[in-house]
Every structure is written in structure tokens, then in C-alpha cells.
Simulated assay, not measured.
Amino acid sequence: MNFLGTVCAVVVLAVLGQAAVVTENGLPIQWEKAPSELSQLPTVDGVIQVNPWDYLQRMSLYKLLINSTDPYMSSMGPGEKENPLWSLPLQLGWKLKSGRLTDPSPATTSTCGLESSEPVCISPLSWYGCINYYLSVLPFLAAVQTGVVGKGEVQVQVQVPAEMAQDYCSGYTDCSTKHPDAMAKWQTFFQSLQQISESEDTDFNKKDQILGLMWAAEEESLQTAHVACIERQKLYSSPEVRFGVSWISSAAYVAAARFHANIERSEKFMAPLPSRVLQESDSPPNIADLSAEENHTLYVFGWMSSVNQLLGGSLVSLWRSAMCSAQAREKGQALLHDLVLDPKFPGTSLMSILTEMATSC
């Protein structure tokens, strides 16, 4: 399969495949059970005590972020599900449903990370739980620090687990010291929201600016997490590690296009993700107990990641070069939209389109 045909196949599968469960009643998994107010989180001596290893508390961080930023997101479009931060709690829900929040140690007897556990918890040894930590705790602390959450009137302490405690942080000061670049970009995102939303610029430009700052922060968090969480990958099978790496790599494409990750779009792209953790014997695209859509997605994601590495990152570089202006990024999102929704879209034209776009920058 050539690159262009591969890209076309994976995005079409994103619509047709329904392997992964990422919503219930149109919202992230167990969203309605998660606390929606800061006052509902545990408090000791006036300091909010966040336990990010409690699934509902971590989901609550997202609920608080989305509720607090919704007033600044009118440029994203009408409706309650247009906030681009929705993709983050949807990912957390998929990780729970697919068993990726459990302890991956071969001899473990822990039930932590299973949806049936009570309360539902997240194992600190989970690579996926660790990656998500940097996309939940860090932005939440930055939002509190900037007053977007809590209006500058609250203090937050984050519980650090006993296992691999050095990879996590306990509060804003600690996180800023350990991960200054990621925290700075999240602060910039939250500090800029009100200014951008209240400007006299067009909604088109406001949306592009907000998405640009958000994706810059998400990419920095992912790069930070990739380094901090690397030891946990050793606990997984080689097929699962390859999938995890390719899954992280795919963020570069949507980030460069400043993809508007509302609930509807996010769910479409997440639907064909693997519904369970891969084992050593799994060889996509021939995994018997996974659907054809899951098998194809695993194969294609892995293939794209490998080709990009073999070519020294030139595939990602070309895409990024083509996304050089607000208008170009709009075309890039339209291109992704056509690839996803129109199976007859001529995939063979993708490379020439990107080359032309990059040349005109």
C-alpha cells in the first residue's frame, strides 16, 4: 500500500469503524458521575486535595476546564459540544474502556484501572495513565493559577502516588519547576482566551488563534510526558509499544492543522482505535478477535509512523510546512474532512496538494 492510499484508508476507517467505545449518552465515559464544582472535591484546611489516580476526580478536572473555558469558545460555533478540549476526556474514557489504565505488569493482581473497580482508579504504572496525567493535571493547575478555574481564589494540592513518585508533581510550583515549558504554554493558552474572545477580530481568526495555542500546549505536554513516562513502556508488549508510539506521533498532523477537536469530530477519529491492550502474539492486520477496522487502523498507524521515521521526519515536516497560515490550515482541515467523509476522494492527489500548499507559503 502506498502512502497516499494508506492515508485515505485510515481516515475513511475513522468514519466506518465503530470498534472503540468513547462515549455514553453522547458524553465521555462516566462524565455525569464526575464532580462538576470545585467544592465537590476533597478539601483539607481550605486547600483542594486532588487525587488524579481516582478516575472520576481526573475526569472532573476536564469538566471544570471545559465549563470554565466555554464562555471564551463562542468562535468555535454554536452548541455545548464545540469546545476543543473535549478530545481529552474522550481519550481518557477510551483508555478506561480498553483496559489501558491498568497496571501492565505481567504478574499483577491489581484490579485498579478496570471499569468494574470501586472506586474506579488509574494505575500509576499505566503508560497511558501517565501520558494523560500531563494532559490533565498540568493544564488544570495552569488554569487555576491564571484564574480561569477558581477565579484566583483557590489553592490546589495534587496527590503523588507511591509508585514512581519522581515522575509526577504535587502542585503548581512543583510542576512549573519540573516541567516549565509545558506549564508555560498552558498558562499562555489560558491567559490569552479572554483577550482573544473579546477582541474585534473575526471568529475565523479567533478560532485559529485559540486552537494554535491549545495545540502548542498539548504537543509540549505530550513531549514532556513521552520522556517522563518512558520507563512504563517496558511493561507492555512490543505491538502495544509500537501502537502507543504511532498514536503519539499522529498528534503532529492534527496539531499542525489546528484541528477543531469537538465531541463529534473526536469520536469519529477515535472510533477505530483498538478496544483492548495488544499482546506479544498480536500481529496486525491479522488479529482474530479485533475488528477489521481495528486491524487496519493498527497497521496503517504503524506504517505511517515507520515511514516517517525512515524518511527522517519528512512526512510530518511537509505537512507542517503546508499549514503555514490560517487560510492554509483551514484548507488542511477541509482536506482532512474530505478524506474522512468522502471515500471517493482521490488520495493520490494528497502529496501534490501538500507540496503546492507548502510552496505557496
Rank of each mutant, 00 (worst) to 15 (best):
F3W: 14
V10W: 00
L13A: 14
A14K: 09
L16Q: 15
A19Q: 14
A19H: 09
G26D: 03
P28L: 08
Q30R: 14
K33P: 02
E37W: 03
E37M: 13
Q40T: 11
T43N: 12
G46T: 08
V47C: 11
P52H: 04
W53L: 04
L56F: 05
L61G: 03
L61I: 10
L61E: 02
S68T: 07
Y72E: 04
M73V: 06
S74L: 13
P78I: 06
K81M: 14
P84M: 09
W86I: 03
S87T: 08
L88C: 02
Q91T: 14
K95I: 00
G99H: 06
L101H: 03
T102R: 15
D103G: 05
P106M: 12
T109R: 15
S123H: 01
P124A: 12
P124I: 09
L125T: 05
W127L: 13
C130K: 02
N132P: 00
Y133T: 06
L135C: 04
L141T: 10
A142K: 07
V144T: 09
Q145V: 04
V148E: 04
V149Q: 09
G150I: 10
K151F: 10
G152C: 11
Q155P: 00
V158A: 02
P161G: 08
D167G: 08
S170A: 13
K185H: 03
K185E: 05
W186P: 00
F190G: 09
S192E: 14
S199R: 05
E200L: 11
F204E: 13
K206C: 07
Q209N: 05
I210M: 13
G212E: 04
A217V: 07
E218F: 05
E219I: 15
E220G: 01
Q223D: 14
T224L: 12
A225T: 01
A225K: 04
H226A: 15
V227L: 14
I230W: 00
E231C: 02
E231A: 14
R232A: 05
E240A: 09
V241G: 01
V245G: 01
S249N: 15
A251N: 11
V254G: 00
A255L: 10
A256C: 06
F259I: 03
A261W: 04
I263L: 09
E264G: 13
S275H: 13
R276V: 03
R276P: 06
V277Q: 11
Q279K: 14
E280L: 04
S291T: 15
N295T: 11
N295E: 09
V300G: 06
L311E: 09
G312N: 02
G313E: 05
V316Q: 10
L318M: 11
L318W: 07
W319R: 08
W319K: 07
R320P: 00
S325A: 13
A326N: 13
Q327C: 03
A328N: 13
G332Q: 07
G332Y: 05
L339N: 11
L339H: 11
D342R: 15
F345K: 07
M351L: 15
L354H: 11
T355H: 08
E356M: 10
E356Q: 15
C361R: 02
C361W: 04
